[in-house]
Computed example of a mutant assay.
Amino acid sequence: MALYPFEKLAEDISPDIPVTRSGFNGVTLAHNVSSKDEVVEIIRRAETAGAMIIKEPQDTFWGGFSGYFADLDGYYWEVAWGPMFEFTKNGEMKFKEDP
């Protein structure tokens, strides 16, 4: 879980999201993956299942790659890959240690 300023999170998703409490509520669910291709694959699967794509997968300001969709209940999901992500054999994500 991460806490991030409401306005900055809305800006990260799309400049078109109104920064009000009547729609986007400042909460996203994140799914971190091990490759850029996996980001695209999951976003496309969500779209096929009826999700609304909010932000197409693209490079991010923080050096990663991510996209956002809204599920059928209106919750926003970020699917993200980052060069600092590392996954164990069990699929657990951790941040790479600096060399």
Rank of each mutant, 00 (worst) to 15 (best):
G63I: 01
S22L: 03
D12M: 02
S34P: 12
T28L: 08
V40A: 14
E7R: 13
W77Y: 10
R21G: 11
T28Q: 02
P18F: 00
E56G: 00
A70R: 05
P15W: 02
T20N: 11
Y68H: 12
N25I: 10
G63C: 01
D98Q: 10
Y68W: 09
I54L: 15
D12L: 04
R45W: 01
A49V: 01
K94E: 09
F87P: 08
F24R: 03
A49T: 04
N25T: 05
G74V: 10
R21M: 11
D98R: 10
T28E: 12
D73I: 00
I54F: 00
W77F: 12
D71A: 06
T48M: 01
G23H: 05
S66W: 01
T20G: 09
F69P: 09
S14I: 03
M93C: 15
T88M: 01
L72Q: 14
V27T: 15
E78K: 10
F61Y: 11
G91N: 08
N90S: 15
V79T: 07
M93S: 12
A51V: 01
V33H: 03
K94F: 07
I42F: 09
E38V: 01
S66C: 14
I53W: 00
N32T: 08
Y68F: 12
F61W: 09
K55I: 04
G26D: 02
V40E: 12
V33R: 05
E11W: 07
R45E: 13
L72C: 14
Y75P: 01
A10K: 03
G91R: 04
F95I: 11
W77K: 12
G23S: 15
F95H: 15
L3R: 10
F65S: 06
